[in-house]
Structures are given as C-alpha cells and as structure tokens.
Amino acid sequence: MLLAPPSADAIASVIELAVAPVFLLVAIGGFLNVCAGRLARIVDRARAMEPVILAARGAEHDQLVEEARLLDRRIRVVNSAITMAVLAAVFICLLVVLLFVTGLFQVDLASVIALLFIAAIIAVGSSFTIFLVETRLATRMVRVPSRLLFHEAED
C-alpha cells in the first residue's frame, strides 16, 4: 500500500514544529563554543607550566604541581560538559528527524519524541551543572591568598 504524498501544509506544520528544537541546537552550539574556549585556555596554561614545574624546586615546585593537578581536573570536567552538550545536540537532531518521519509517514512516534526531548533537556542540564563545577574549580584556583589581602608594607 502506497502512502499519499504529504501536502505542503503538512510539511509546513512539521517545519514549524522543528523550529524550536533547532533554536535549542543553536544555543547548545554557543555553549559548546564557550566550553571549547575555556578548554583551550586551560590546555595552554598547562603547557606553559610544564617547563616552569621542571625547573622549580621546593615549596614553589609543590605549589605548581598542585596547580597542574587542578588544571588536569578542570580539563576532565570541561570535557565532560562538552560530552553532555554534544549528547544533547545528538538527541535533538534525532528528535527533529523523528518529527519529520512522523509528519511525512503518519507514524505515531510521540512517546519516542517526548523521551528524546526529556533526555536532551537532562543532558543540557547536566552539561550546565558540570560547567558550574568547572567554574568553581577555576575560582578556587585564582583566589587571592589572605596573606596578600591583609599584607601591610613595612615602614
């Protein structure tokens, strides 16, 4: 049995439904750009620290190694945020495809579409939460020591 080709109105309706998820894709793309920029800066800082760590001794060496460990952790955390954001984007792409399949072939995939949307929002929320962890790590890294905040110059 052949299906009748969908009408232009049916296709227009599917396109209207697909527009909102596509805007979410654009937002995720912007977020991925922010994450990639942060990752690049962290990696650059870690690479710049390598010769300094190798040349340092004593307490300075220990402090630099601790900073390098924190940079390594931040790299892993940002990568996790990127992974979750990309996963959300993949879910949204699948959702848009299924919207078109539903509209063009009159197949009822409403439950699958709803579950994909829920999964995408959970992945986006997870990505934002992981990103918050990374920004907290970065803040901890650049805190000004209290010995400097309350330092007074000698007369």
Rank of each mutant, 00 (worst) to 15 (best):
M1D: 13
A4T: 12
A8S: 11
A8K: 13
L17D: 14
A20C: 00
L24G: 14
I28R: 00
G30A: 08
G30P: 14
C35S: 12
R38L: 03
R38H: 13
R38I: 07
V43D: 07
A48G: 04
E50D: 01
L54M: 12
A55V: 08
A56H: 15
A56I: 08
G58P: 08
A59W: 14
E60K: 15
E60H: 13
D62S: 15
L64N: 10
R73F: 01
R76H: 08
N79A: 07
S80K: 07
S80Q: 15
A81I: 05
T83F: 07
L87T: 12
V90A: 14
V96W: 00
V96C: 05
V96Y: 00
V97I: 15
L99P: 00
F100V: 06
V101C: 10
T102R: 07
G103M: 10
F105D: 10
F105S: 09
F105E: 05
Q106K: 13
A110Q: 10
S111D: 15
A114C: 14
A114E: 12
L115H: 15
L116K: 07
F117W: 09
F117H: 12
I118D: 14
A120S: 13
A120K: 10
F128I: 05
T129G: 05
T129H: 03
I130Q: 01
L132D: 06
E134T: 02
R136P: 01
A138V: 02
R140G: 15
P145H: 06
P145C: 09
S146V: 12
F150P: 00
H151N: 07
A153M: 02
